[in-house]
Design a binder for these strands. Structure first.
Lengths: 137, 137, 137, 137
DNA sequence: GTGGTCTAGACCACG
DNA sequence: GTGGTCTAGACCACC
């Protein structure tokens, strides 16, 4: 499990954890029936408060992505992979739509918006490669 | 001056006001030297507390977009239009980059991302038209 | 009469006018018995509100620097020159003391303070020369 | 932490707090990574409204001196000590320059100015000693 | 517990 | 009339 937690960008930590678990399930990084890391292990690994991890897990249980197995821990539910694929698209799509609405409201031209998007897409690709390289090294 | 304030989307009201004034200055909706609406007037118009408007204005003063003219009110500074144009692009660009980075991290394919963008762009255009029509009617 | 009015440095305009008249009297730029400019003339010259000039004059009357001569206007009182010389020193001295107290509180060393003073003194001399040259040209 | 707040000298309370924190960081009275007093505690200690303290802290965040650690409080940022040392000098230097410019404009002689400075420096030293003694007693 | 936002309302200085 | 400061107190999210 690879998490990127940023404690200083305003996004709640529990939210970041929950989203990234959704992504992992969508990518089959965690399979149906597989245990997720224990609260105390994950909290140690991410250096965050255990309550924060617990809150993320609780939220995922409410969404039906995780369920408890008595005496074992939390596992990915049966239909989760498909569901997560769809929610992943929805989550990202919502954010995209929201920023585009602000872009419209700011009266940027459609061409400006498109070029910002293209630039950002290239920039994000570069950043992704850099991170990958750093991790491989 | 047209403001779209949404008090229930998590974005602080004072921040929305500040951003939209930056947009207005960038579009020359408010020209250099022109007075922005008085704190009291704008607060009445938007049905928010005067302090909230004052906070937005204070932030814009710190950024050098507005300055006080004693006994008169707040006016747009000299270099503000150019500065606002650039910050507008920066603000929108940052949001786009941020969502694209999450999209990468979620391992959506580049094609998925592009199609989400295209869909959202179309959707935002529709929404903009709807708003325009509503206001004209 | 030469006034330097700065409407955007926080110091009240009427205060700047009053102080500078005190200075002028101290320097014998305006002599005892001489008329000061009329409110409306000075307000036009400085491009400020007549009320502002009137307020400065009122303050100077309260201090006994100016007095009304019926049908004439405001003139410099008899003992004003000496008094203004002393208040000038007091006013400047108070400001100097105040900033030095903050400097102490900030725990700048005495050497730091002295060097800041020397630098500023040189800088203010340069600025004064520049202004003089500009006015002469 | 020792604060000298004067609520009746025209300088905004939040500004006094902010300046004195800058001084404290410059003197390493508060180190990088260390928590500043909580808004509630400091407001109680200084007998001012929490919002007033919060405003000072917000200003310091904008300047990059403080940053929030979620659920913990506000800590001094990494580069803050150096930055505060320089802004301290700048803040004091600006005030000195400003008063010297007025002294020039008032046509005090350079000797007069120097003697006022020397007197004030001595006076401020005495005041500082008196305060120190009072605190020690 | 922490900071952040917002409201309501008072008072002041300035023009 | 204008903005600026400050108070008092509520509510929220996060840890």
């Amino acid at each position: 499990m690879f998490f990127n937690i940023n404690t200083s960008n305003g996004v709640p930590v529990y939210e970041q954890i929950a989203r990234q678990i959704v992504f992992a399930v969508a990518n089959r990084g965690i399979e149906t029936g597989e245990l997720v890391p224990s609260v105390r292990n994950l909290s140690r690994e991410l250096a965050v408060n255990p309550n924060t991890v617990a809150r993320a897990y609780r939220q995922l249980q409410d969404q039906g992505v995780l369920e408890t197995v008595r005496g074992e821990g939390l596992v990915v539910t049966k239909g989760a992979a498909a569901k997560c694929k769809s929610t992943r698209k929805k989550m990202i799509g919502e954010r995209i739509l929201s920023v585009l609405q602000e872009a419209r409201q700011s009266q940027l031209t459609e061409d400006d918006i498109k070029s910002l998007f293209a630039d950002s897409l290239a920039a994000s690709k570069k950043l992704a490669n850099k991170n990958r390289t750093r991790k491989e090294s």
